[in-house]
Simulated assay, not measured.
Amino acid sequence: MVRETRVTAGELVAHACRGDQPAWDALVDRFQPLLWTIARTHGLDRASAEDAVQATWLRLVQKIGTLWDPESVGSWLATVCRNEARALVRVPLPRHPPDAPAAGPTPEEQALARDHLTRTATALSTLSDRCQGLLRLLAAAATYTEVSAALNVPMGSIGPTRSRCLHHLQEALGE
């Protein structure tokens, strides 16, 4: 094969179609920096950028014999890489590795939450039985229809009663 600097992109594609490994190497040498730049410009980290670039080369391997304009392989590669990078940008990244346990609350956060729960339970116990039942049902995501049936009260009175009960709870909490 002729020196890579004198060979056009179209000629490299033609040689690569015939299985010429030096042609493939020359294509990679010529266009790999462009593909990396495109992937990283989309804000991908190194691993995701590598995935986008590898997917682009894989697509070329699959489609090299069907390119309409082999001379424009650089533009074709750039378009494919842009699409691969955009697809990876849209995929939400996990906040932590799937096999690693999620980081829990700190001991201080646990103590504050426990204290808040204890204070709320104490304040709730000072309310009337009717308010306690209503607030517990609503906290359990019961619908007004379910609350009405469970407490034998008209649906129209649930909202105002809820409001009064929450006000009493806030007062008991000292808020």
Rank of each mutant, 00 (worst) to 15 (best):
V2P: 15
E4W: 09
T5F: 05
V7D: 03
T8I: 08
T8N: 05
T8C: 09
V13H: 09
A16I: 11
A16G: 10
R18D: 12
P22R: 01
P22H: 01
A23Q: 07
D25Y: 01
D25E: 14
A26R: 10
L27N: 06
L27H: 06
L34I: 10
L34D: 11
W36T: 01
I38K: 02
R40M: 13
H42T: 02
G43L: 07
G43K: 01
L44D: 06
S48F: 08
E50W: 02
A52Q: 08
Q54T: 11
Q54K: 14
A55H: 09
W57P: 03
R59T: 14
R59M: 08
V61K: 10
Q62P: 01
W68Q: 15
W68H: 15
P70E: 02
V73S: 04
V73I: 10
W76L: 07
A78C: 08
T79F: 04
T79A: 11
V80C: 10
V80F: 02
V80H: 03
R82W: 07
N83L: 11
A85F: 07
A87I: 01
V89W: 01
V89P: 11
R90L: 13
H96K: 11
P97F: 03
P98K: 06
D99G: 09
P101S: 09
A103K: 14
P105I: 09
T106S: 15
P107L: 05
P107Q: 04
P107Y: 01
E109S: 10
A111V: 10
L112F: 05
L112K: 13
R114L: 12
T118V: 11
R119H: 12
A123M: 05
L124W: 00
L127T: 04
L127D: 06
S128Q: 04
S128Y: 03
S128G: 08
D129A: 15
D129M: 07
Q132N: 04
G133N: 12
L135Y: 04
L135R: 06
A139I: 04
A139K: 03
Y144S: 11
E146H: 07
E146P: 02
A150G: 05
N152I: 02
V153E: 02
P154W: 00
G159H: 03
R162S: 14
R162Y: 09
S163T: 14
C165R: 04
L169N: 08
A172V: 06
